[in-house]
Every structure is written in structure tokens, then in C-alpha cells.
Write a protein that binds this DNA or RNA. Structure first.
Lengths: 116, 116
DNA sequence: ATAAATAGTAACGGAGCCGAAACGAAGAAT
DNA sequence: ATTCTTCGTTTCGGCTCCGTTACTATTTAT
């Protein structure tokens, strides 16, 4: 049985979640940064700069800069690939996992409170 | 019967929607701009700069600038309140309604395709 | 060994957004 | 009529992000 979420409900859900993030936002991630974060945490590793660039259809420098930001926020880590030292492997952190955990819970709670 | 969307599913849904928006994004709205747009279209009018500022917990200039951007994108309009000419009333547009319509449909489709 | 390809980053100029403060216009209070 | 308040905008310096281009380091091909 698939999730049945009508368009009006979807927008309302998005609205409530966005309101929480904007109002009490500790972090203020752009759509691009959020997408990178979700990709790293939800899709199977390994993740590289090049891989993310093609997956998101943006340039490599854009990924590098986003990784700088997300790295400063401790949401992600970078380390050299020892097998092929040209590559950089993007890894997960406790803080990043916690952040997404809270975000997922927020959405769940808001979805539960949605009018029929 | 409330919508039952587990945290993991919520993050996956957010991921897929974000991917679409980032990859083929005509517009690239910030979280704040998106929240303003949703507030104007989902909450009952009238909407003013001051009202949005307090609702989103941001400064008035931030709202003014976001309205500039959203206005240039034709997603929103501004007009003077003739009753109290200090106020500016923020209104909806066909383009804005269409944009949110498509967004709602996108979320619905992605939700339907979510694994159980 | 040398050349070519690949991965990631730095440098550059430009554009957009930020909060704080100042501003002008409109209304309310006295 | 003159102050006082409210509303939205503008201005200011600062910060972040953007895409393009150029660069270094590493690996592969010849």
C-alpha cells in the first residue's frame, strides 16, 4: 500500500516543516547543500566530489564549496582515498546523522498532524 | 486516519524531491523564499511585510528583498493597501499558483513511489 | 620516461542575501 | 498643528555562493 499524500497535503506539510526550519533554524542549508547531505546519508557509499557533481548536475567547484560549508558545520567529513589518492571520499558524522534524524522525525510529526 | 510517514521514508521523499528541484531547477528558491511563497498561498490573506516578518521570525528588510526576488519571478505581486496606505498587500499570481501546483504534484508522485 | 587524462582545489570577478541603521510616507494621538 | 508611532524601503559594509578558468597532484597510456 503506497503512501497516499495529496498535493494540497504535500504543500501544507512542506510549509510546516519549512516554517520550523526557518524560524528556529540553527543551520540554514541551501537546497543544494541539503541535497548533498541527503545523498551522502541515504545513498550507498563511496561518495566522491565527481560523483556528487554528476548526480546533482552541478559543477565540481560547487560541490567543493558546499563540502567546505558542510564540513565546517561538522555534518560531513572528507578524506583522501588511499587506493586512488586523486579521489576524496566524503563520509558521515555523528552530528550529520543526528541532524537528519531530527529532520526525519519533524516531518513525521508534521505529517501525522495533517488534516485529512 | 492520519498520514503515516516514517522518518526514513520522510528523508527519502525529501531527497527525491530535492534532487528533482536541484537537477532541473528553473528557479532556485532559498528556504526562506519558499516559506514566504507557501505562507502567502496557503494561509488566509491579507499578507503584509510585517506579518510575514513576525511569522517567519526574520527582519523586515529580509522580507522586502525576498519579495523583490519572488516578484521578479512573477510568483507574487505587491500592491498598496488603499485602506491604510502604509501597508503593502502581497498577492498571488497565476504563475505562482502553477508553480506550487506542480510542486505539490511532484511530491505526491514521489510519495506514491516510496518503498514501504 | 614522457605524455595525456583524471580528481579535486584555488583564484577571480560578479551576483545575491544578510542584519543594522537611517529614511520617507502615512496614520494616530495630543 | 505638532508630535509620535507604524510601515515598508533603502543604504551600508560584510559575507556567502555562483560559474569559469587555471592549477597541482596523481594515475594511466604509450
Amino acid at each position: 500500500m503506497p503512501i497516499d499524500l495529496r498535493p494540497g497535503q504535500a504543500l501544507r506539510l512542506l510549509h510546516e516543516v519549512n516554517l520550523c526550519l526557518v524560524r528556529d533554524g540553527d543551520f540554514d542549508l541551501s537546497a543544494r547543500q541539503m541535497t548533498i547531505l541527503l545523498t551522502v546519508y541515504l545513498e550507498p557509499p563511496p561518495h566522491t566530489v565527481r560523483g556528487l557533481a554528476t548526480r546533482l548536475n552541478v559543477t565540481k567547484p560547487a560541490i567543493t564549496r558546499a563540502l567546505d560549508t558542510l564540513g565546517n558545520m561538522k555534518l560531513l567529513t572528507r578524506k583522501r582515498d588511499e587506493a586512488d589518492r586523486r579521489n576524496v571520499i566524503i563520509g558521515r558524522t555523528v552530528e550529520g546523522a543526528l541532524y537528519l534524524d531530527q529532520l526525519g522525525n519533524l516531518i513525521t510529526v508534521k505529517a501525522r498532524g495533517l488534516p485529512r
